[in-house]
Write a protein that binds this DNA or RNA. Structure first.
Lengths: 114, 114
DNA sequence: AGTGTATATACACACACGTGTATACATCCC
DNA sequence: GGGATGTATACACGTGTGTGTATATACACT
C-alpha cells in the first residue's frame, strides 16, 4: 500500500478528530473543543485529512462542516485483510461458524502465528 | 486508542517488513534484502516492532527469526470496527443523524470524496 | 585459532512535522 | 457600518525520528 493512510493516522490529534467525526459532521470550532491545541492547528490537521481523502467539507454560513469519507477506511480494511488469519484462526476454536467463514475466504494459508 | 499501532505502521519501511513477515517468519538478513536500507536500520525497526508487540523472535543458530504477532492487528481491527458503518451498512445506526442533517441542508457542496 | 557471517547498539546528523503566534478573509448580528 | 465570530494560511521554532557509519558480540565453519 503506497497510501498515506497510516501516516495520517499516526498523529494522535488527528485520530481524535477522526473519532469525533465518527459521530457525524462537525464544525471546526466544535472540533477545537475536542482537542487540546489551537484552532490553527486543527485547521491544518483538517487540511491534511482532506488532502488524504479522510474528510469532506461543506460550507454553512461561516461554518465549515467536516464529515468522514469511506475511502481510507476501505483501504485500511483491505490492507488488514491480508493479516486477518493471524487472529481469526484463534477464534475458530470457539465456533465452527467462524471457522467455516475463514476457511472459505482464506484458501491456502501457509503459516499461522497465534 | 492510546496505542502506538499507527505510529509504528506510519513508516513505510516498517510496513514493508511487516508485509514480508506476513508470508511467514524470516531472518533479519532476509528482511534486509526486502528493503532498501542498511542492516542496522532493519534491526532498529525490528526493535520498534518488537517493543510494540508486532513481532516475536526466536534464535536459530546465529540467525534471529522474526514472525508476526496478532495483538496489534486485533487492536487495529477493533479501532476500525467503529467506522465500518461508513461503507458496509448503509444508513443505519449513527448514519441516521448524519443523513438527516445532510438532507436538511443539501446546499452547495464544494468537494466530494467518494 | 581464525575468518566470515549474523545481529544489535551507539553516535551524529539531517530533515520532517506538529505547534503557537500572528494575520487575513469571510460571515453573522446589532 | 462595525464589532464579533469562524476559518485558513504564513512564519518561526523546537523536537522527534529515520538513516548511515562504525563498532561490539555471538555463532559457524574450516
Amino acid at each position: 500500500m503506497e497510501s498515506v493512510v497510516f501516516e495520517v493516522l499516526a498523529d494522535s490529534t488527528r485520530r481524535r478528530i477522526v473519532e469525533t467525526l465518527g459521530a457525524g459532521e462537525r464544525a471546526v470550532h466544535v472540533l477545537v473543543e475536542a482537542v487540546d491545541i489551537q484552532q490553527s492547528g486543527v485547521s491544518r490537521h483538517l487540511r491534511i485529512l482532506h488532502d488524504a481523502g479522510f474528510v469532506r467539507v461543506r460550507a454553512e454560513g461561516q461554518e465549515r462542516l467536516y464529515s468522514l469519507c469511506a475511502g481510507p477506511f476501505r483501504e485500511l480494511d483491505k490492507w488488514m485483510r491480508q493479516y486477518r488469519g493471524l487472529w481469526e484462526a484463534r477464534l475458530d476454536r470457539f465456533g465452527a461458524e467462524l471457522n467455516r467463514r475463514q476457511r472459505a475466504r482464506a484458501g491456502k494459508r501457509r503459516e499461522i502465528h497465534p
